[in-house]
Design a protein around this nucleic acid. Structure first.
Length: 572
RNA sequence: GGGCCUGUAGCUCAAUGGUCAGAGCAGGGCGCUCAUAACGCCUUGGUUGGGGGUUCGAGUCCCUCCGGGCCUACCA
């Protein structure tokens, strides 16, 4: 039994995520976690909310709440939505947890002791009215290049020129609009990533099987221009992990916190510790996932994320791990995703464009979304959500191919034999051909799931569903029944067992439907199929079942048009 | 500006340099009647973005041009 550690990039606390965020990290991670559990592997699946940073402080202020309270509330909201999508985290933690505070400070101290932290005094823009230092993007002004009046301090959105905040004409705070800005000196801690460049490069080079998207981004950052740069890991904020603490090998950092991209990945580890705490377990329980000196040497660690997160996971976080000098588990495989676009443009959290997770669940159950998103996952390039495509895929794949298959078998059986697996007869040669086909397809499906080829796995799963309809059509038990009821019984018995097999195979994609199918069949047998002939003999003659309701309803044209109109604008 | 990804049927996507470039959906025809007006079978549809090159052989490798997208270190 393999041990698989899975983490999804942790969603930022500020607001509800859209479907593009979901399909880029949490959902495929869940697919992989569910698959491995079904295969009998020991899985630890960790996610969390990323709670620190300027946007959280500002959002809390806007909501008129203390930031801790705001984050606690938003964590509950995101947690509820995650449950709604059936994201099967073993723990959904918080980067603001006591565990993460302690571990982040521990890592920083180790890095300091190993000479990998530099103290740097730099100049930053301070807003007197806001009483805070402003990140570059929170400074607005007129672009010196093109004259655009709402250019940001990091880049002009209009002419795309890279800017420095001091380049802006008539700079003002994007938070308050105040023009009372000063350049002040402030001291920060830098992670000396340059020192680790060769080690990181060798480590990346050893990962030949990683997606091109992952390694190309990593190598660009490693080698472009002057190569990997040292990185500031602290900020002048109140909300976060304090950078000055007992045992810290530096002084004068009071009132400063670690930057989110230092503490957020550490939350993967801290989140596992939170899991142990929540389950009344000791430290050994989580350390066996993360410490190679305490049992984690046989763990396979896989991370899921959108492409924007790749630099932090290929370089910054590994720099922290390696630089600590302690035997923490490094990631074995990074599965990264491109972006999902929405109807001709980008999903946008800041502009409220697209479909957000809570809205999606208010329209249709999780399985509909899970199936579409996963079967269209942006693995090789950006992909696009359109309502027409969504409607067509859901109706055809889920309602017609799978749902109707379940329906036709169970209803035919009920009318001819009653709600019980019928006995007698031999299914015949067509059944043998079906078994042979499924043998090939199921093994291919396993291969795709293990390789995390999400689209290919979905395509194969659909073909497995289709095979059932093909068999049924060719075998035609409704005709056979007239002359040879016993053979028809054998065919139906096979069909009912196919439903169970489909439930098991489909569980990672559509867990609720899988549950409904198994419940209707009156079985709890979720055994992953070995030889297909055996898997299709699990439900014995005489086993009672109940004909289920419609498994997936179809999306009507009017509904689609209604949703299309409703989500055409921006979220209010 | 630099880097990376991408362009294949009306749509969404496949194809270790090697049969005639394949699937699903949509379209057309036929069959079936168990089923959610479903299912199955057959079928139409391509100058693989343009141009050049390497090769016995190029969707695949190289060059170039055109289009789309992302990243570019203080959004997270």
């Amino acid at each position: 039994m393999a041990r698989i550690l899975i983490t999804s990039a942790i969603p930022y606390i500020n607001g509800i995520k859209h479907l593009g965020n979901l399909v880029g990290s949490q959902l495929p991670a869940d697919l992989y976690a569910r698959y491995n559990r079904m295969r009998g592997n020991e899985v630890m699946f960790i996610c969390a909310t990323d709670e620190h940073g300027t946007p959280a402080e500002l959002a809390a202020a806007k909501a008129g709440k203390p930031v801790a309270e705001y984050c606690a509330e938003m964590h509950e909201v995101q947690s509820g939505i995650a449950r709604g999508f059936r994201l099967s985290f073993d723990h959904f933690g918080r980067s603001s947890s006591a565990r993460n505070h302690a571990l982040t400070q521990h890592m920083a101290r180790k890095l300091g002791e190993n000479g990998l932290i530099a103290e740097v005094v730099e100049k930053q823009v301070f807003s007197v009215a806001d009483n805070r230092f402003l990140p570059d993007r929170y400074i607005e002004g007129t672009c010196p290049n093109c004259g655009y009046e709402k250019a940001r301090g990091d880049q002009c959105e209009n002419c795309t020129k890279q800017l420095d905040p001091t380049d802006l004409i008539n700079p003002r705070s994007a938070v308050s609009g105040s023009t009372e800005l000063e350049v002040r000196e402030t001291k920060h801690l830098y992670l000396r990533q340059r020192t680790l460049k060769d080690k990181l490069g060798a480590w990346i080079d050893s990962k030949a099987g990683w997606p091109v998207l992952t390694t190309s981004i990593a190598k660009k950052w490693l080698n472009d221009g002057e190569g990997l740069q040292d990185r500031g890991i602290t900020r002048d904020l109140a909300w976060g992990v304090p950078a000055q603490f007992e045992g810290a090998p530096w002084r004068g950092m009071e009132g400063k916190v670690f930057y989110v991209w230092f503490d957020a990945p550490i939350e993967y580890i801290a989140g596992t510790a939170e899991w142990a705490d929540a389950n009344g377990l000791d430290d050994a329980a989580w350390e066996r996932w993360w410490r190679t000196d305490k049992g984690a040497d046989d763990v396979t660690y896989v991370q899921f994320m959108g492409k924007d997160n790749v630099p932090f996971h290929t370089l910054s976080f590994p720099a922290t791990i390696i630089g600590s000098g302690e035997p923490w588990k490094l990631v074995d495989y990074i599965k990264s995703f491109n972006y999902l676009n929405y109807d001709g443009g980008q999903f946008s959290t800041s502009q409220g464009r697209g479909v957000f997770m809570d809205q999606a669940l208010s329209i249709l159950p999780a399985d509909y979304w899970r199936w579409w998103l996963l079967s269209h996952a942006p693995e090789n390039s950006d992909s696009e959500f359109t309502w027409e495509n969504f409607q067509a895929s859901v109706n055809k794949d889920l309602a017609d191919v799978l749902g109707n298959f379940v329906s036709r078998i169970t209803k035919f059986c009920r009318s001819k034999f009653g709600e019980v697996v019928p006995e007698g007869g031999i299914a015949g040669e067509r059944a043998d051909a079906l078994v042979a086909e499924l043998e090939t397809r199921v093994r291919a499906y396993e291969g795709h799931m293990e390789a995390m080829d999400v689209r290919k796995a979905a395509t194969e799963l659909r073909a497995i569903w289709v095979a059932g309809n093909e068999y049924l059509q060719a075998a035609a038990p409704w005709s056979v029944f007239k002359e040879d009821p016993a053979q028809a019984a054998a065919m139906v018995r096979l069909g009912l067992n196919l439903i169970r097999l489909y439930a098991v195979l489909s569980e990672p994609f559509i867990p609720d439907a899988a549950e409904t199918m198994l419940a209707a069949l009156g079985t709890k047998d979720r055994t992953w199929p070995g030889p297909i002939a055996e898997a299709l003999a699990v439900l014995p003659a005489g086993h009672a079942f109940q004909t289920p309701d419609v498994l997936f309803r179809k999306i009507a044209d009017e509904e689609r048009e209604d949703w299309q109109a409703r989500f055409a604008g921006v979220r209010s």
